[in-house]
């Protein structure tokens, strides 16, 4: 359906970005030192613990990591949708020059769904079962563009057509349970793009779908991005999706960013032992390997994270005296080569 040649398009955009890269005003989103904690009965869970993140205009940034590493909480924090017992404790989320964390709730509602939209993992449960699809799309248009019911529905049909739903004038009357998961995700995307947002946060948008549908949804997102120029923050645990969609990648582990680089560098020369492990664990089609590398151990308990480097208990990179430092001191996120940031003591000069 989407016939854009991805590689070519991506190459062109990356080049374009490189020229304007130093321009401060070109930053769409700048997350600084974000800390989101959950205050549970058993103690404080530091789900996001000092995350820094930048998304430039028109750029697609991937956030990758295992489940439970804080990817989703980061995205919900940006939308300020973290519910009790979670709380954003520290940090700044600067979106187009304003710190979202300082905005009154009323102004925040004018940003959500309008300038920043979100697409979630489970499309079928994300749509309200008692309202028609048309109503749910028209509602966004009604609150942000004051479109009346009739105009809203008309626009909803256009949006459904845009996201590739067949017979949109019929489908608009359907209830969520009457459509498939893939179609529901298209509806979610239509709803997210209804107000032409500047930033789209997609939280595992394809994880819950069949493999063939996954590819279609990714094609659609790429296609729409190229048409609208929206910045995308794509959260996934699937490095394949990252490779296909993103220009820059942020790797998260246990609530922290451990590595950040452009997609080519990251795949060609991953520096952090965790990233190396992640990339080593991808099966490569057509290539016979003795065994897939697996990262031993499990994600640490965020209730009681290791005192030093959070990856230390699972790290196989170095042994001996160097290791002692990892156990007690958390490494900072450092720019070890231009635009390549790593949180690891190995790369300390």
């Amino acid at each position: 359906m989407s016939s854009v040649a991805p590689a070519a398009a991506k190459g062109a955009r990356v080049a374009g970005k490189a020229n304007a890269g130093s321009d401060r005003s070109d930053l769409m989103l700048d997350v600084q030192g974000l800390k989101t904690y959950f205050y549970t009965e058993d103690g404080v869970v530091k789900a996001v613990d000092g995350v820094d993140l930048k998304v430039k205009r028109g750029e697609t940034v991937g956030i990758v990591g295992e489940s439970g590493c804080g990817k989703s909480v980061t995205s919900l924090s940006i939308m300020r949708l973290v519910g009790a017992p979670g709380k954003i404790v520290e940090g700044r989320i600067i979106f187009d020059g304003t710190n979202l964390l300082e905005l009154p709730e009323k102004e925040m509602t004018q940003i959500r769904g309008n300038r920043i939209s979100m697409v979630f993992q489970q499309p079928t449960t994300c749509l309200n079962p008692v309202f028609k699809i048309g109503d749910q799309i028209a509602e966004v248009l009604n609150i942000h563009q004051s479109l009346g019911k009739e105009a809203g529905w008309k626009r909803a049909i256009e949006l459904l057509r845009m996201v590739g739903i067949p017979e949109p004038q019929k489908r608009v009357h359907a209830y969520p349970h009457e459509i498939s998961g893939g179609q529901a995700q298209r509806v979610m995307i239509a709803m997210a793009l209804a107000c032409a947002p500047e930033l789209l946060i997609a939280d595992e948008p394809t994880t819950a779908l069949d493999v063939t549908i996954q590819a279609q949804i990714l094609d659609l997102m790429r296609d729409l991005r190229d048409k609208t120029g929206t910045s995308i923050m794509l959260i996934t645990h699937d490095l394949g999706v990252i490779a296909e969609m993103c220009e820059r990648v942020v790797v998260m582990y246990a609530g922290q960013v451990v590595e950040e680089a452009d997609v080519y560098t990251l795949f060609a020369r991953p520096l952090h032992p965790y990233t190396q492990g992640l990339i080593g664990s991808i099966p490569v089609l057509g290539k016979v390997r003795e065994h897939l590398d697996v990262i031993p151990g499990t994600v640490p308990n965020l209730l009681n994270p290791p005192p030093g480097c959070r990856f230390e208990p699972r790290c196989q990179a170095c042994q001996g005296a160097a290791r002692e430092r990892c156990k007690v001191e958390t490494p900072p996120l450092r720019e070890v080569e231009p635009n390549h940031w790593v949180r690891c003591w190995m790369y300390e000069k």
């Binding site: 789900a47 439970g68 804080g70 989703s72 017992p85 979670g86």
Partner: peptide, 8 residues
């Protein structure tokens, strides 16, 4: 908020 607490 299911997804955020499910990660706990």
């Amino acid at each position: 908020m299911a997804s955020t607490t499910a990660d706990l």
